[in-house]
Design a protein around this nucleic acid. Structure first.
Lengths: 238, 238
DNA sequence: CGATGCGTTGATAACTTTCAAATTTAGTGG
DNA sequence: CCACTAAATTTGAAAGTTATCAACGCATCG
């Protein structure tokens, strides 16, 4: 232990002027508004859209958790650097997903844009104030937190599986979340996947190769996975 | 995979008459009331105390989540049986802890008493109704869920560590939660610990023996651990 | 065209599990 | 309270899985 290199990602810090004090940019009330819940609607009313280039930090661990975020386009990873220098990815957030909501002062994890990403920011205090007078919003906040809880619980269940089961579960989950057909476009690198699954990139790579040999998937490019045999995959997912 | 025996614990089902429709037993408003938060006070006002003998089921996975529970005395494990028959323990709950709060219809996990346990039950619907008209209770519910979220996030971070780190982290956490001095009384078996840490009982046992050899702990009885060298343990905990 | 980053593949080492058996502890009936 | 039985825990040896170290291929970008 205490063995690995300190850092493997290189988050290019976005210029501070743009990162803090979100400027009043475009109101975002476009595609994501279709028949959504009251909270999403409220966020889009109250929020400010902001862009984050690929690999830039959105917020850092322990920074004041003053804003709540919703992904409009692109994708986001949250993570923590462990004492031994390894990085643990806590979650991936795709368009429509809400992240960064905290109940303590500071953020539990850091967040970075995986690809060029647009997100809506809403002041947490504003959201909390809104919730105080509005039982619907209040319930919705509780529901979001409940879903996040469920997601993390599933992450726990993932981490006790074998390497192959972890990779398969990940692929099936990404396919479902991205509402993909049989072809999944992965926004994240092998390193991101490995750090989410608690594996090394070599193991992830070898497992994908193995699944391809078994005709369960195809990997035409490293970021594109074709699910050739979903029922076989479901068998393998533990 | 798909290899292990189906069951390793043998939950003796408590007689149905006692398990369902909580009878109006003793009001529980004793030791735990000392300067606690409004939600705990509310639960103790509204709730019904109920006893669960060791190894009995408190609720089962997917059963309607109609009640929220607070441990008075004893301790509780929540868990899920995985497809391959292994059991994953999701969490341990000690006196004062709240468990069983859900945001969907059914329970995510099963819950069992580890030792003879007394708990307060409150109808979830009553709690939710109370929260609707009371911003303080509402915030408190959100805070509880936030703490549970944090706990599960920590569990994720635990599961990517080495076996020794997992065991050490577990011991330090239990010592803190039980407000123990240097001697920790573990309410749960090696199997419970192993299933929580994602290890086998053999690995847990060997690791404890190793820590004892390294003079970091003593194990006078299997359920009693003396933390002989906390700073050494903190070094080892990753 | 060379540098650079990302992904894959191979060989070996480290760690954890599995299988087996011994030992200790706890529970039960007399 | 003691003896007996079952359950829990510990220990050992071997096998299996994943990590580590190293090298190579491929694509991108200046």
């Amino acid at each position: 232990m205490f063995s690995q290199p300190a850092v493997r990602t290189d988050p290019i810090r976005y210029p501070v002027s743009t990162r803090t004090a979100p400027p009043a940019q475009s109101r975002a009330s476009d595609d994501l508004s279709r028949g959504v819940n009251p909270l999403t609607r409220a966020m889009q009313m109250m929020g400010t859209a902001m862009s984050f280039p690929r690999n830039t930090e959105i917020f850092g661990e322990n920074e004041p958790a003053d804003y709540v975020y919703q992904v409009i386009s692109g994708s986001v990873r949250t993570y923590k650097i462990l004492n031994d220098g390894r990085r643990q990815v806590a979650g991936f957030y795709l368009p429509g997903d809400i992240f960064g909501l905290e109940f303590a002062e500071g953020h539990t994890f850091s967040a970075e844009a995986i690809a060029d990403t647009k997100a809506i920011l809403v002041k947490r205090s504003a959201l909390m104030a809104l919730a105080t007078g509005n039982a619907t919003i209040s319930r919705e906040l509780l529901a979001i937190t409940g879903r996040e809880l469920r997601r993390v619980q599933d992450h726990v269940l993932l981490l006790v599986k074998s390497a192959q089961e972890r990779v398969v579960t990940f692929l099936l989950e990404m396919a479902e979340r991205a509402r993909a057909g049989i072809t999944v476009e992965l926004p994240m690198s092998r390193q991101d996947i490995a750090d989410y699954l608690g594996l090394t990139i070599e193991t992830v790579s070898r497992t994908l190769t193995g699944l391809e040999s078994a005709a369960a998937i195809e990997v035409p490019t490293s970021r594109r996975i074709v699910l050739r045999n979903r029922s076989a995959l479901r068998q393998l997912n533990g």
